[in-house]
Simulated assay, not measured.
Amino acid sequence: MDERRTFSRAGDPSRADAAPEPERPEPEQSGPGQSGPGRQRWPIRVFAGLILLAAVLLLWPFADWSWWPIVIGLGVLVLVSLLRLDRVLFGWAPHLAGLVVVVLMAARSDPWAWGLAAGLAVLVAGFTRLPDWRVLAAGAAVTLVCGVGYGVAHYRTTAQLRADQAAADTRYRQSRSALPAEAVLPSITTDIAADDAVKACGILGSPAGQQFAAAFGAPDCASAVHQLNARVVNPRGYANPRLPAGSVVKRSDHTATVLGCRAWPDPAAAPGPPLGQFELRLYQGSTYLITGYRSCG
């Protein structure tokens, strides 16, 4: 009788003195607000805003530090506020303005810069998701590939620009120094009479300018021009040499020779120091470039 009473009392779950069941721990919430067990992620709008800000800061140097994308982005934000569209966007109006800035800056840069900025933005996102390293690794890979691509493309572009600029400078100098064969000697003597070494040496070019300087024992072309100018006794007569017929020899291989020694056969009556022989090469049309020089002796 006592045993049945004890059994009934212990097996009845409705009795107040029954042993309480142990509490079960509540499962941890997981979802878009976490990056790991018990760890709270940043709100999605804050996270997206940080990514846009990082993209703007990373693209800005590649967009030549232009302020126009930022000004336009602020204008979009003001326009959205004035039109009351911020309510329709549910708080995403600043992100829309940031996206406009990113797009405008990306349009001013090259695709490698886009990839580099995207990779760095993913890196920033990966740091916020640690200890989950997968996003961080993906961002590092994209940054490495696009960084190398940007470096190679930028180096090639810079080298090509320098080569193009050098070629353009050469063409410009040649176009300024190209003359008809009959005008070569008068141009040189006119510049010597005026002591204009810049123009005279520009017409002579290289290596003719070096040969010209060596022929008169000068260290360079400009010094030779100054030395010859000091020996000019009649600047007007020296600037107008009279070459006899046959002093300009043109050949079928697009070269020519100007025999400057024939301008003043009598050195005693010459208005200045006699000049030697100029070798020419056809440039464009009927104009020539001076390619060599040697003295009369």
Score class of each variant (00 low, 15 high):
W67A: 07
S247K: 00
R173T: 06
A54F: 10
T291L: 01
V142P: 00
P273D: 13
W42G: 01
T157N: 12
R236S: 13
V152F: 02
I203Q: 05
L52Y: 11
G126N: 08
V152W: 05
T291C: 08
S81T: 12
P131N: 08
I192K: 04
S206Q: 14
G75Y: 04
Q227D: 15
G292A: 10
G292W: 03
D17Y: 09
I44W: 07
A197Q: 03
E26R: 00
T157R: 14
R156Q: 13
R5C: 07
R156C: 06
A245M: 01
D253M: 07
S177P: 06
R162I: 05
D2P: 06
V100A: 11
P69M: 03
V78M: 06
C146S: 13
V102L: 05
G151K: 00
D266P: 03
D191M: 11
G151Y: 06
A213V: 04
P180A: 07
A153H: 11
W68V: 11
R236M: 14
G31C: 10
A230D: 15
G292M: 05
A193M: 00
A138Q: 08
A245S: 13
G91S: 03
A113D: 15
V122W: 04
G126V: 13
S30H: 02
I290A: 08
G151S: 14
N229Y: 01
G98D: 09
P111T: 09
T287V: 11
